[in-house]
Design a protein around this nucleic acid. Structure first.
Length: 453
RNA sequence: GGCGACGUGGCCGAGUGGUUUAGGCAAGGGCCUGCAAAGCCCUGUACCUGGGUUCGAUUCCCAGCGUCGCCUCCA
């Protein structure tokens, strides 16, 4: 069973399932007002790996990941560019899923849109007001955090400590609020802004209310796992939870947060620092698998720098794996070596130790390559099968690159003929030509293998 | 100010109270090859500083230095 670090208890604990054999996961999705950046890519990849692993281990996974399609930033951009806000959200959402597709991130089982759940949000906020946990001001509806006894569970700080610090940050809407930490559940709209009707005044839901409603609506009380980037821990996740608690509901049982993508100086990539790197740029210039590989070789809670150097290292490592898949492709029918698979399971169950899993993969590949050299076909096929099995569970597919045109195949044959005739200058010239065209040319006992690089 | 994380070989990056101390990339040597490529074998003696605990610490404790994160924009 998977043992996973839980942010709430700050300890690794077994992921307890509400229903045996089934896992319900909520992942906070993007606010669609701009292109996805590297941090988005990391989060979706980390949870894609988690989800694939859980599915591979035989669980029925239900992953819900929302689209926040109403938010101040969307409205700001619509005003700035004089466009309809829906135009922005639709386009950004398309770009998002296109990018995720390239990354090999499987689409979530459910993709709720905040705008489709406004009625439920209104009902929830009404219930909070009735319970005296929320109150109306002249600019919106706020949750009274004093009504949540353990507020600060995820922040790991008491309300007093949180308020005592924070330097000279401005407290939003402070004049209207009963407590500085109270947060908006509903914001009244200004003229011309998108608005939904509500008994206390037309407006739009607050971000924190969107996710709590959608997660409870689709996964139900006491769902298994709530996850997202470490920056969502507080205030977003804290505030989602606060609303559920104030309603007397059980919220997520386990909290998972991934580490940041950092820049050259080790600083978090963040919008306010202006050092975000676009995910689309990375996808344009590199094999998308390289980003997954880089993340697999880093623990999900550690910071990771995504630079040309370490992406290049991953591209090279991937080339070695592809090459392995190609040279052993004749032995692809084996049963996965059970010891290797078991070691994989042990690594992953230890708080998703993907770095150990990758070490296992590389070690196994070396073993199988050596067996290949030694003609030990039985070892090749069982270890190869285990490697493919593991990589599949992690979302990495190897490329044999054998989808080549007939004229390229013919050149490989001609190359062999030239070598047989010991006409090495002719052979070299064919090889140079193929390599210049981007093919990998490898000499084997059975002749030349030409494949896509 | 409060809370938290981290400082590992040329680079990236795991991990551990003590024998073979991950893995990737890069580097050097070798095998294989007509030459390459791919592959295999070998090599590097790393754990911020100062104390402490211990037979023994990179790993535990304390202090210091440094880096980073959160404390209502954020994946």
């Amino acid at each position: 069973m998977l043992n996973l670090y839980d942010t709430a208890t700050q300890s690794v604990k077994t992921l307890a399932l509400r229903e045996p054999g089934k896992v319900g996961i909520y992942l906070c999705g993007p606010t669609v007002y701009g292109p996805p950046h590297l941090g988005h890519g990391r989060a979706t990849l980390v949870y894609d790996i988690l989800r694939r692993y859980l599915t591979w281990s035989g669980l029925e996974v239900r992953l819900v990941s929302n689209i926040t399609d109403i938010d101040d930033k969307i409205i700001d951009r619509a005003n700035r560019e004089n466009r309809a806000w829906e135009d922005i959200t639709h386009k950004c959402e398309n770009v998002w899923f296109e990018a995720m597709g390239k990354l090999g991130v499987l689409r979530p089982d459910e993709v709720p849109h905040a705008t489709d759940y406004v009625d439920q949000m209104v009902s929830m906020i009404s219930a909070l007001i009735e319970r005296d946990a929320a109150y109306v001001t002249d600019d919106g509806v706020y949750l009274n955090v004093k009504s949540v006894p353990d507020y600060g569970l995820l922040a790991h700080q008491s309300l007093d400590d949180m308020l005592s610090g924070g330097g000279d940050r401005e407290v939003l809407g402070a004049s209207n609020k009963k407590n500085p930490a109270d947060f908006a559940l509903w914001k009244f709209s200004k003229p011309g802004e998108p608005a939904w009707s509500a008994p206390w005044g037309d407006g739009r839901p607050g971000w924190h209310s969107e996710c709590v409603v959608m997660s409870l609506e689709l996964l139900g009380e006491g769902f298994d796992l709530h996850c997202g980037g470490a920056d969502l821990r507080f205030p977003h996740h804290e505030n989602e939870r606060a609303q559920a608690v104030a309603l007397g509901k059980t919220f997520a049982k386990h909290w998972m947060h991934n580490g940041f993508v950092v820049d050259l100086e080790g600083e978090k990539m963040s919008k306010s620092l202006g050092n975000v790197a676009n995910l689309l740029d990375l996808l344009e210039h590199y094999d998308a698998r390289a980003y997954r590989m880089l993340l697999l070789q880093t623990h999900y809670r550690s910071p990771v720098r995504v630079g040309q150097d370490n992406i290049d290292a991953c591209v090279t490592a991937l080339a070695g794996l592809d090459s392995f898949a190609a040279r052993t492709s004749a032995h692809s029918a084996g049963t996965p070596d059970s010891e290797v698979v078991q070691n994989f399971r042990t690594a992953m169950d230890n708080d998703l130790d993907t770095t150990a899993a990758m070490a296992l993969v590389f070690d196994s590949v070396r073993r199988a390559n050596a067996a290949m050299d030694a003609g030990d076909v039985a070892t090749v096929s069982s270890v190869r099968a285990a490697v493919i099995e593991i990589l599949g569970a992690l979302g990495l597919e190897l490329s044999i690159g054998d989808d080549i045109d007939a004229d390229i195949v013919a050149k490989g044959v001609a190359l062999d003929a030239a070598r047989a005739a010991r006409d090495f200058s002719a052979a070299d010239s064919i090889r140079n030509e193929l390599q210049a065209a981007g093919y990998v040319v490898e000499t084997t006992k059975d002749g030349t293998r030409v494949r896509r690089g």
